[in-house]
Nucleic acid binder design. Structure first.
Length: 106
DNA sequence: ATCTTGACCTAAT
DNA sequence: CATTAGGCCAAGA
């Protein structure tokens, strides 16, 4: 088995996110046993273009804010995708975020 | 090994 | 509200 880079782990988790659910960088980091590396998780997402099958729009910061929306093709693409999955976005934030939150370890 | 960067978090100014 | 600063971690050059 090849070495599993941090990126690979992140991708693996993000791909596991159920449709219509979202998670946070911190939750992913925690799942990877590196709870303080939330930045590194986000950094991995920056490289997610290497694997476009990753639903990065389902990954937000711990406030449920779409911090990474500006890294998408368009600023409204991310919230549009979330809306398509039944998630309401208001002012770049996920409405009822707690309700849509999904923990990778659960 | 050293330096830089990054889609974070928190606090302070 | 905008910017800075410190802390945290991983990867690339």
């Amino acid at each position: 088995m090849k070495k599993t880079s941090f990126f690979q782990k992140v991708y693996k988790v993000v791909k596991k996110i159920p449709h219509g659910k979202v998670t946070t960088y911190g939750a992913i980091a925690k799942y990877l046993a590196t709870p303080s590396s939330s930045r590194t998780v986000g950094w991995a997402m920056n490289a997610c273009h290497n694997d476009k099958s990753i639903p990065a729009h389902r990954v937000v910061n711990r406030n449920g804010v779409l911090t990474g929306k500006n890294h998408f093709l368009g600023i409204n693409l991310m919230e549009q995708l979330l809306n398509s999955e039944g998630i309401d976005v208001k002012d770049d934030k996920i409405v009822n975020f707690k309700n849509h939150f999904w923990d990778p370890n659960t």
